[in-house]
Design a protein around this nucleic acid. Sequence first.
DNA 1: GGTTGATATGTTATACCATAACACTTAGCA
DNA 2: TGCTAAGTGTTATGGTATAACATATCAACC
Lengths: 161, 161
Amino acid sequence: MTAIGFRSHDHAQCVSTTLARAERYCVEKKLKFTAIRRRSLEILLAEHRALGAYDLLAVLGEEGLGTAPPVAYRALDFLTSAGFAHKIEGLNAYIACAHLGADHAPAFLICTSCKSVAEAEADATEGQLGEVARATGFTIRRTVIEALGLCPNCQPEAPCA
Amino acid sequence: MTAIGFRSHDHAQCVSTTLARAERYCVEKKLKFTAIRRRSLEILLAEHRALGAYDLLAVLGEEGLGTAPPVAYRALDFLTSAGFAHKIEGLNAYIACAHLGADHAPAFLICTSCKSVAEAEADATEGQLGEVARATGFTIRRTVIEALGLCPNCQPEAPCA
DNA sequence: GGTTGATATGTTATACCATAACACTTAGCA
DNA sequence: TGCTAAGTGTTATGGTATAACATATCAACC
């Protein structure tokens, strides 16, 4: 299980390969990767942090891509439906997917201090929830698995830079 | 791992024992179980469903216990802090705790059709998230573990009554 | 090329979720 | 009694999300 978000990495490449994959995926699935949608994904990808819909909207607005809330929410709907982004329910915020391409049940480690978010795969965890689900006859459609706490950089001894 | 919510059970007793436990807990911890707080818990306990803060407020209002939003949110703050209720992040709604007394990391199975919610213990799951957390140096404060789907009564073949 | 239908976008308005801030009351205790 | 802490009443406002309808774009087909 890998987690991306708290370690340093080649972010420029992380962004460009993700965009390229998204592009390819849209061609394959005949989805329209329009200017607003593409730019929205770029904005989310800029940092491994969760952005509110209105934060995204503010940036889109500065760039003349729309100012009314539905603009942002439609873009986010598209990105989350396509699996390019996820909603962090605990923050009412959105984040670019760190494992684009895989059909997955994501789990998140969310730093409440610096708001950075690490995404991990949660298959084993889903198996555990799946156990209870099977026992009760429940059919799982989507899982929300989030841990709120402090990232390595924000521990009490070493406040976030 | 037990899950309460989709099976039939002696609900009157389920309610009264929970209230009694809450009462006792408040005495022990010197917490004030005021009329508003007590009634709010009763309202949440009435069904194994999640209620919005404004749904709760509407009932409180009918009973002359307050009409402004802070009334409901304060009661919910108290109930969640004391562990008498949980917030369902995926629904922005609140539900009475089904395992009152235990200090626990709850997991929820949420039926998107009839809105009923089953609460299960998630210690093992937290252990799994805890694994990633340890690996990355992340300190967990709180976990949000929710599965959205269809309960036994709302499966396609057997629509919810 | 023009028509059609599906999808995307622009825009207004509104609903829902949550909290800040301040005045006032009550309960417990020195 | 009078202090203090906690709870409550109330107004106002901020943050999140969607309904509804008009317009535009584009690909497929004739």
